[in-house]
Computed example of a mutant assay.
Amino acid sequence: MTEKGFTITTILLIAACILPIAVFNYWMDPMWTFGSNHKYNQVQTVINERQQKTNNLYFNKDDYDTLLIGSSRSTYINQNEFSNRKVYNYAVADLSFKDYDTMIEFAKTQKGMDLDTIIIGVDFFKTSIAETSAESDFNTYIDQVKEPFYRYKNLLSLDVLNYSRRNYNLSKAGDIVEPRNYNRSNVADALQIDSQQKEKDTVEKISKFRNEFYKDGKYEYNEEFKEMLETIQRNNPNTEFILFTTPIYTGLFDALLEEGRYPDYVRWLEDITEVFGEVHHFMYPNVVTNNMENYFDGHHFYPHVGAMIAHVINGERGVEEPDDFGVLIKKDELENRLNKLIENHD
Rank of each mutant, 00 (worst) to 15 (best):
D99C: 08
G174N: 09
E316F: 00
K331V: 06
E178F: 07
G70A: 09
L158G: 04
F138A: 00
E49N: 10
V160F: 09
G217L: 06
H345T: 06
Q52G: 08
A310S: 14
Y219W: 07
Y265R: 05
Y302W: 03
G174A: 11
I120V: 12
N235G: 00
A15E: 14
R337P: 04
E258V: 02
T239C: 02
E147M: 11
K198E: 15
R317P: 07
E259F: 06
D346W: 07
M292E: 14
G260V: 11
T273A: 12
E199G: 11
T273C: 10
N238T: 10
F82K: 05
L57Q: 07
L269E: 11
K98R: 10
I129D: 14
A107N: 04
D271Y: 02
L341Y: 06
I272S: 00
S128M: 13
S36I: 05
T289P: 01
R73C: 03
S136N: 13
S195A: 14
Q42C: 06
I77W: 02
I248R: 11
I248D: 07
N37R: 10
G326H: 04
F106A: 01
V43C: 03
I14H: 10
E258Y: 09
F106N: 08
T245A: 09
V43F: 02
R50M: 10
K330D: 11
W268G: 03
D175R: 12
S164M: 05
D271N: 08
S83E: 14
S133P: 06
K218Q: 13
Q52P: 00
Y163V: 06
L338K: 08
K330P: 01
V288T: 13
S185N: 14
Y141F: 15
H300A: 07
G306S: 07
Q197D: 15
T75P: 11
P20S: 13
S72T: 06
F149T: 06
L68M: 13
N55G: 05
F213V: 01
G260F: 07
L67G: 11
F301S: 02
S74Y: 02
N80I: 05
N344K: 14
N48I: 00
R50P: 08
R234A: 14
N60V: 03
F124K: 07
D216G: 01
G35Y: 01
W32F: 13
N56G: 00
Y182P: 03
N162I: 04
A93T: 13
N89R: 09
D324Q: 03
V177H: 08
E135Q: 13
I69F: 05
K53T: 02
M308P: 15
Q197A: 10
K198R: 15
R337E: 15
L115K: 06
E335K: 15
Q144P: 01
Y262R: 10
S136T: 12
